[in-house]
Design a protein around this nucleic acid. Structure first.
Length: 423
RNA sequence: GGAGGAAUGGCAGAGUGGUCGAAUGCGGCAGUCUUGAAAACUGUUGAGGGUCACACCUCCGGGGGUUCGAAUCCCUCUUCCUCCGCCA
């Protein structure tokens, strides 16, 4: 959520920057400013009314104390009108403030100046590419075929017990999955991220805090009996750890990592591109989250990108990094780098990580602040990234490491797996 | 699930209808003293709105109510604690 004060002061530049997202924000912004104006004028009027009635109440108290009940009763009558007026003004204020809030929720984050304009993923800008694309034999298979051939992932079994998009990992498949999680967590903690185990369900406030609510309501599984949401990413519980906090500058940087399953409804997604592990309702992910001083957040973003690069290097997977264009940029993000692994057998790039700086957008919803050197409260910056998302990394490994003898295990994972080939 | 109790500022903890945005202690910050530090002493120290700055307004777990006036009384929700039951 953008800060209203920022919108007041930088209306034109915000509208301009939002054009990169292919939206004309002018009507929204104007509406917001109008509501803000209205809210403040009602507030002023209400404050004056309350001040008046506070004053009268004090006088009444004093009069009663000094035994002048008669005079006090005269004043009492005067308060009736004020009471009615402040009740009405209070209601108006609530209505207007709510309306303002709802409008503010609709405005996406302002893209960073480096974000390229563009409509879709085709306009994303490739900024880095590394790793050799292996030459596979003609019989090379996509991962869903490999999964069946070696009996390591069973999609049908998942359908039986739950539904489509809930695979069952078996034997060496399950072990490889566990190895990846442990390996990622180790890499992250080595880099100074503190490992956290967090709840897999969150309340409504947390959903609003990181921006999944209200705009992505339909993407989350909602447990209605208890009004809780299954997390779509560890970003939600981990970032909300500091909801409402006022930090000291010396608390920065705050660096967390966490492994969680993620649950996404992915309503309406079917077809070839969502086959196998490409898109699931439940998948595993190791996330990194940072809270930073605004002056350091872009350096932190660079560090996170370098960190993910190192992991992919160690896994020896061919990958590229994209700077997302305005049209593809997430609602809450100011700047996002996507990592994609090349799936040789599918002959396409698979997104395996997304690293973003949200600047103050989440912090404003979270009320996550710090005291600056003057003792004033300022909003912190929040960032997060996948380090990494399991299924597509797994798909990349299965497909790129397949040989006639079986699927080789990347060297760094062998100690975690306890075997070096799936055959 | 049943029966009781509780929720106040960073923490601890007073406050049961007006003078309470809230005593006191600890912690934090600034200063005095000191070569420096500690101790001691002095001052200062919640958040949000609003204003050029003041004024002023709101907030004592959340929401609603009673009253001229609510941290204080009533209703409701949530959370925590104690005891009982159940249980990985």
């Amino acid at each position: 959520m953008l800060q209203i004060q920022n919108i007041r002061e930088n209306k034109e530049s915000i509208i301009n920057a939002l054009k990169k997202r292919n939206i004309d924000a002018e009507p929204m912004i104007s509406k917001v400013l109008e509501l803000d104006e209205k809210r403040r004028s009602i507030q002023t009027e209400l404050d004056a009314t309350l001040a008046e009635s506070n004053k009268l109440s004090k006088e009444i108290g004093m009069l009663f104390k000094s035994g002048k009940a008669q005079e006090a009763n005269v004043l009492k009558e005067k308060t009736a009108g004020l009471k009615e007026a402040s009740k009405k003004l209070g209601d108006d204020l609530n209505t207007t403030a709510n309306e303002l809030q709802q409008q503010l929720y609709l405005i996406p984050n302002v893209p960073h100046e480096s974000v390229p304009a563009g409509n879709s993923d085709e306009d994303n800008e490739e900024v880095f590419r590394e790793g050799d694309i292996p030459t596979l034999s003609k019989e090379a298979l996509p991962h869903w075929e490999l999964a069946k051939k070696y009996d390591i992932i069973d999609f049908e079994l998942g359908v039986k017990i739950t539904g489509a998009g809930f695979p069952v990992y078996k034997g060496k498949g399950a072990r490889l999955q566990r190895a990846l999680i442990a390996y990622f967590l180790d890499k992250n903690t080595e880099a100074g991220y503190t490992e956290m185990q967090v709840p897999l369900m969150v309340n409504e406030d947390s959903g609003y805090g990181t921006g999944q609510l209200p705009d992505k309501e339909g993407q989350m599984y909602h447990v209605q009996a208890d009004d809780l949401y299954l997390i779509p990413t560890a970003e939600v519980p981990v970032t909300n750890l500091h909801r409402g906090d006022i930090l000291a500058e010396s608390d920065f940087p705050i660096k967390y990592t966490g492994y969680t399953p993620c649950f996404r409804r992915e309503a309406g997604s079917y077809g070839a591109h969502v086959r196998g592990l490409n898109r699931l309702h439940q998948f595993d992910k190791v996330e990194i989250v940072r809270m930073e001083h605004p002056n350091n957040s872009y350096q932190a973003l660079d560090e996170m990108v370098e960190h993910v690069k190192n992991i992919l290097r160690e896994l020896k997977l061919p990958y590229r990094i994209l700077r997302l264009c305005g049209g593809d940029l997430g609602f809450t993000s100011a700047l996002t780098f996507d990592f994609e692994v090349f799936s040789t057998a599918q002959d396409r790039w698979l997104e395996i990580s997304s690293v973003s700086n949200f600047e103050t957008f989440q912090a404003n919803r979270l009320k996550l602040r710090y005291k600056d050197e003057n003792g004033k409260s300022q909003l912190a910056h929040t960032l997060n990234g996948s380090s990494l998302a399991l299924p597509r990394v797994l798909a990349g490994i299965l497909e790129n490491y397949q040989t006639d003898e079986g699927i080789k295990i990347p060297e760094v994972l062998v100690p975690y797996c306890g075997f070096d080939i799936i055959d």
